[in-house]
Design a protein around this nucleic acid. Structure first.
Lengths: 235, 235
DNA sequence: TTACACATGATTGTATACAATGCAAATCCA
DNA sequence: TGGATTTGCATTGTATACAATCATGTGTAA
């Protein structure tokens, strides 16, 4: 099996070295092997990847544009640590953009697209079975990206891709384990609606799916109460 | 008057040199001094700005992320030339995002914000009077960015900022001179609605304003007809 | 004359060296 | 001992040198 799809289909085009580095770091962030706040030293990375600091810097700047890393002038790059506010905003933006995208996808999807989506779901399910949660989160995100791609609106798809990248970080920070509802079901229903070409239904399903996701995060504001050490430490 | 506003208020923070270069190029693009398709040679730019190619490259990559320049591997950077399709998509995205943003702005605006908006309008009007069309277009864009800032949703505001940057390019390419309706009026009405805190009205006004803008562009598909030189040249 | 191949020049991609900045530990003074 | 200051080190910011790649123009052969 020469071209089997372990991951999503490669766009066929050898990535430049800085893109390769950026992808590797991005993947590590998505799979939660790099925790938010981790320092990303240039020298260290250039040793790891066997390239010069020049290309590492390019990769880091690229990731900074996606809000996956924060670069502080003269202090270096760190894995981004989205604030509660940012977390909320990201999901609000997704709730604004993705339902309409799902509708468009339902109206434009070809049968080949449906197949791709179904394969995503089974991959996702497999990852959950194995217990590889990082991979599951990443595949779940790529499912959403795939829908945006099917909708065939590059501009909005770009936005969504960025939002999903950040969502992965947010999930790493704010996910509450109690509500471990397997979201494969929601994805499955979505694919059904898209396969039927039912735009209305796809839009609704996507909206409720995102609301579920949003509410599965612990985005309550915890910073207000403990203003002082005394308040925080003496009950 | 020490702190008079020729431009928008500076965010107070010395920009790094690559940001300075990026801003200068961006400004030139926004004011249509650099036409779409123009080659941006690294050596040439490093001479112009008196910096090394290193910082020029960083600036160009930054602009590429905003879709203001296209970078072709081993061939260099060029001022982006948005396709008809991209042009349509950008305005569709704006019509999706900005009306809701205008509503949020109306609900959150403080009196200081209103003042800023009004000053934007008068600056814009002044530029039109002088006949500095490039500056007028840029200020018009910054008016929209200011509204997004007032709405206080950084994530969406970022998207809008990028969309407006591209809009300027699109206007340079596809504006049809006949429909030179001065859009200051639309902006003025918007500020009124925002000042009154009338979110509903602001949303509607923004929507119709964007539709007007969109329809003032010549986004008809002209590529279909003249497939051959003969068809194009012999009437 | 046209088409193709090759050589040459110009431009970008990458690596490395040096300068500037920030952080932290050590020092000095009260 | 406490605090401010200085000094040293580690890291980032910038410049430059070299390698790789692409575009252009020339020459030769069909």
């Amino acid at each position: 099996m020469p071209n089997q799809s372990d991951d999503v289909a490669k766009p066929a085009q050898k990535p430049t070295s800085d893109e390769a580095v950026a992808d590797a770091i991005s993947l590590a962030i998505h799979e939660h092997r790099l925790a938010p706040g981790t320092k990303l030293g240039e020298e260290e990375l250039s040793d790891v990847f066997g390239v010069s600091r020049t290309v590492v810097r390019a990769a880091l700047q690229s990731l900074a544009h996606l809000h996956l890393v924060d670069i502080h002038r003269n202090r270096g790059a760190f894995v981004a640590k989205p604030s509660l506010r940012m977390a909320r905003e990201v999901f609000e933006a997704r709730e604004l953009l993705e339902p309409r995208t799902a509708r468009a996808a339902a109206e434009k999807a070809k049968s080949a697209d449906i197949d791709v989506l179904k394969r995503h779901i089974s991959d996702e399910h497999a990852a959950v079975e194995v217990g590889d949660q990082g991979r599951a989160v990443r595949l779940s995100g790529q499912f959403h990206i795939e829908i945006a791609r099917i909708a065939d609106q590059l501009t909005v798809a770009d936005f969504i891709e960025g939002l999903i990248a950040r969502s992965s970080l947010i999930i790493a920070l704010y996910w509450r384990r109690e509500s471990a509802l397997c979201e494969s079901f929601a994805h499955h229903a979505l694919v059904e609606a898209i396969a039927e070409g039912d735009g209305q239904k796809a839009e609704e399903l996507m909206r409720s799916h995102l609301v579920d996701l949003h509410s599965a995060l612990d985005l309550r504001d915890r910073t207000a109460a403990p203003m002082t050490l005394k308040d925080a430490l003496i009950p």
